[in-house]
């Protein structure tokens, strides 16, 4: 009983974080704000994958989060590289 309430709390917090990061992505005044919010969204997607992996007892979801954690870094670096070159 207690654990199920805990799952609801975890997923609602992750959803709130997702939505607020998406709002920043949509209206962020400058390009770096948008890049940082994309980074934040992918980090919270990692959180979702890990929570689902624990909830449904599927260890293969953890591989997705490992790959995403590695590739996200690369994506942010590539965006920053592009930003530095453009200015």
């Amino acid at each position: 009983m207690m654990v199920e309430i805990l799952w609801d709390v975890i997923f609602s917090f992750l959803a709130i974080g997702f939505i607020s990061a998406f709002i920043r992505l949509a209206k962020g005044p400058h390009l770096p704000d948008r890049i940082i919010s994309l980074d934040l969204i992918s980090i919270m997607a990692i959180g979702f994958f890990v929570a689902y992996a624990v909830l449904y007892d599927q260890s293969s979801f953890l591989d997705v989060s490992i790959i995403l954690a590695i590739i996200t870094f690369l994506g942010t670096v590539a965006f920053a590289y592009y930003l530095e070159r453009r200015v």
């Binding site: 293969s60 591989d63 790959i67 590695i70 590739i71 690369l74 670096v77 590539a78 590289y81």
Partner: peptide
């Protein structure tokens, strides 16, 4: 990922993408 494929999650395609992104990280 390459060696674990076929019966579980993984395989040549995903492994190749991860290796290619490692090489791109080096290039950047």
């Amino acid at each position: 990922l390459l060696l674990r494929g076929h019966n579980e999650v993984g395989g040549g395609f995903v492994g190749g993408l991860v290796a290619a992104s490692a090489l791109m990280l080096y290039a950047i």
